[in-house]
């Protein structure tokens, strides 16, 4: 028996919108820790890892570990039927081949049940070791989204370079080139508007902008984004989900032949 009641149902709606472009089908894993997912895109270039901790739910019952295979576009279709202020409850019985999403309006005058068929998904879990990153950049998520969108109108790849001067996003295409430099800026009114750069050593890596743009679908989940770079590792683009957990995107770099 599984029953997870999320008062801020809009978070789950935003999570689905953030990942459904990257991944079609995925297993949601439910354990005492929380509601989680790890899935790769079909070309094994990008990976999304989601965690919604059990403490973040108003009610969290998960009698035994359960893995539920879902088509994310179908799940998004159902969650779009929930109001932004609705409380969402996810329910499943042991051994059942369906999951139920229950939507309650804030004043309890409307209650809806949507039952979705589950699917068997063979998913390969990747072991992601804890790593030391050469550079960690925290910046406003909307700013990062704007940069990725702007650069993708010029080129297909972005070079992200971190030096003590700041973080530089560069691209090149048929019509020309573009460079956007963001300097560390802690003297802002609100902490979420700051750009903070922690650098152990300079790093420069190249990534496909198509994936970066897909990650920025998570922008509504968090005011800030953290980009962790190391020359020997995929980049991690992390959006914290207030009080509940995170959504992390990993992207393998491109290398010069």
């Amino acid at each position: 028996m599984l029953e997870l009641r999320l008062v801020q149902g809009s978070l789950l709606k935003k999570v689905l919108e953030a990942i459904r472009e990257l991944v079609n089908d995925a297993n949601f894993d439910c354990s005492a820790t929380g509601f989680s997912l790890q899935a790769m895109d079909s070309s094994h270039v990008a990976l999304v890892a989601l965690l919604l901790r059990s403490e973040g739910f108003e009610h969290y019952r998960c009698d035994r570990n359960l893995s539920m295979g879902m088509n994310l576009n179908n799940m998004a279709k159902m969650l779009r039927c929930a109001g932004n202020d609705d409380i969402i409850t996810i329910k499943a019985d042991d051994g059942s081949d369906t999951v139920t999403f229950m939507f309650e309006s804030p004043n309890q005058d409307k209650i809806a049940d949507f039952e979705m068929k589950l699917m068997d998904i063979d998913s390969e879990h990747l072991g992601i070791p804890d790593a030391e990153y050469h550079a960690i950049v925290r910046m406003p998520s909307a700013e990062f989204a704007r940069i990725c969108k702007d650069l993708s109108s010029i080129g297909d790849t972005v070079v992200i370079s971190v030096t003590k001067e700041g973080v530089k996003f560069s691209t090149a295409g048929d019509i020309g080139t573009a460079n956007i430099v963001c300097r560390q800026n802690k003297t802002v009114d609100k902490p979420e508007e700051a750009t903070v750069i922690e650098m152990q050593e300079p790093v420069s890596l190249t990534f496909a902008l198509r994936y970066m743009n897909s990650f920025t679908k998570a922008t509504p989940l968090s005011e800030t984004v953290t980009i962790s770079l190391s020359s020997e590792l995929p980049v991690v683009v992390e959006y914290k989900i207030a009080d509940m957990g995170y959504i992390r995107f990993y992207l393998a770099p491109k290398i010069e032949e």
């Binding site: 790769m40 070309s43 094994h44 270039v45 990008a46 990976l47 390969e124 879990h125 990747l126 072991g127 992601i128 070791p129 790849t157 190249t206 496909a208 020997e232 590792l233 995929p234 990993y250 393998a252 770099p253 491109k254 290398i255 010069e256 032949e257």
Partner: peptide, 14 residues
């Protein structure tokens, strides 16, 4: 020419 690496080059399957 640039080559796109895959995640398996960095992470191992459990």
């Amino acid at each position: 020419h640039e080559t796109q690496l895959r995640l398996e080059a960095f992470f191992t399957f459990n």
